[in-house]
């Protein structure tokens, strides 16, 4: 053979160029809505990620709280400490801006983890159902169908209730976040499984799967090496749209008082707290966390919508 050493790995620059010129990138550059949504979402992620450095106060450190600063309106000076609070304070004198940053951090963490959990579970079950077929498929999909007949918030509440019942009282607050992730994740896997099953059924009939079977590849290798990369397109769309849903579900659960504890509030807990003071005139305690939740959920949802259209060849 020739003296040229062939390599299977292309250069990084050619990969980057490939990404920039890809249809997805082009569609992104030509969608102002997607770009604004991405900008908002990125800004919120960064704010949440760097909350300890951005937040002017540490709202959950009882030592730093001054009860006299409670109910300070936005841009007002605390009566106790004289500090300026941009978005005001709540009943306990916690800086609303700082609690939002920390709350968003928790909301995002729970949302992302729940979606990741739901995706791993749903994709795995969907792949198996679609590739293996037969009674395995029937079993998995019937369970999914039954779960679909319940609203996902009810499923989450149910799982949350069962989990709380199993955990000793002293660990409850500590475990609350993980229980939330588990219950939201379990309530959302169905859509992943159904979509992946459909794609896996189509893909597994294609000849490249036959070729892999022909050389004696085991089902596990075919599922994860051959089929998985080919079903990820729709999964990414569902994951994005479900991230918005997971954040809202978490907020709903926390608002209902069964989610994140008041000692470690998420956006939902903050809204729940703020609601108590809406009619007594302290509107900022409710308004700012709500606006943040809205911006977060809306930007993720718009990104998901764009991604769905961009990946759909029929709409191009």
């Amino acid at each position: 053979m020739s003296s040229v050493q062939p390599t299977l790995k292309p250069s990084i620059s050619s990969r980057l160029r490939g990404v920039w010129e890809s249809d997805i990138a082009w569609s992104f550059r030509h969608s102002p809505v997607a770009m604004i949504a991405a900008f908002v979402f990125l800004a919120l992620i960064l704010a949440a990620l760097f909350a300890p450095w951005i937040a002017p106060y540490t709202p959950f450190d009882p030592a730093s709280l001054n009860l006299m600063d409670g109910f300070t309106p936005p841009m007002g000076e605390g009566m106790g400490s004289g500090s300026v609070y941009w978005l005001g304070t709540d009943d306990q004198g916690r800086d609303v801006f700082s609690t939002i940053l920390y709350g968003m951090r928790l909301s995002l963490f729970i949302g992302l983890s729940a979606v990741a959990f739901a995706a791993v579970l749903g994709v795995t079950l969907g792949l198996i159902a679609g590739y293996v077929g037969g009674w395995v498929d029937a079993l998995i999909m019937r369970v999914a169908d039954i779960q679909l007949t319940f609203p996902s918030i009810m499923v989450a509440l149910l799982i949350f209730g069962i989990a709380r019942g199993l955990i000793p009282a002293e660990y409850r607050d500590q475990m609350a976040v993980w229980v939330l992730i588990l219950s939201i994740g379990l309530s959302e896997w169905v859509q992943f499984a159904r979509t992946v099953r459909g794609s896996a059924m189509v893909e597994s009939k294609k000849d490249y799967v036959q070729a892999a079977r022909l050389i004696g590849r085991k089902p596990r290798q075919i599922l994860f090496r051959h089929l998985l990369p080919n079903v990820m397109g729709p999964v990414s769309v569902i994951a994005t749209i479900y991230l918005a849903l997971a954040i809202i579900t978490e907020a709903t659960l926390s608002f209902l008082g069964v989610g994140a504890p008041p000692t470690r509030p998420s956006l939902g807990t903050l809204i729940s707290i703020g609601q108590d003071y809406l009619f007594s005139g302290e509107w900022w305690i409710l308004l700012f966390p709500s606006m943040t939740l809205l911006a977060l959920a809306l930007s993720v949802n718009l990104l998901g919508d764009w991604l769905r259209d961009a990946l759909n060849p029929k709409l191009q």
Binding site: K206, L214, H226, P229, N230
Partner: peptide
Amino acid sequence: VQMIFQDPYASLNPRW
């Protein structure tokens, strides 16, 4: 024993 397939679009894994 090997095989050559009919459809050149379906017989190669598009992600590989």
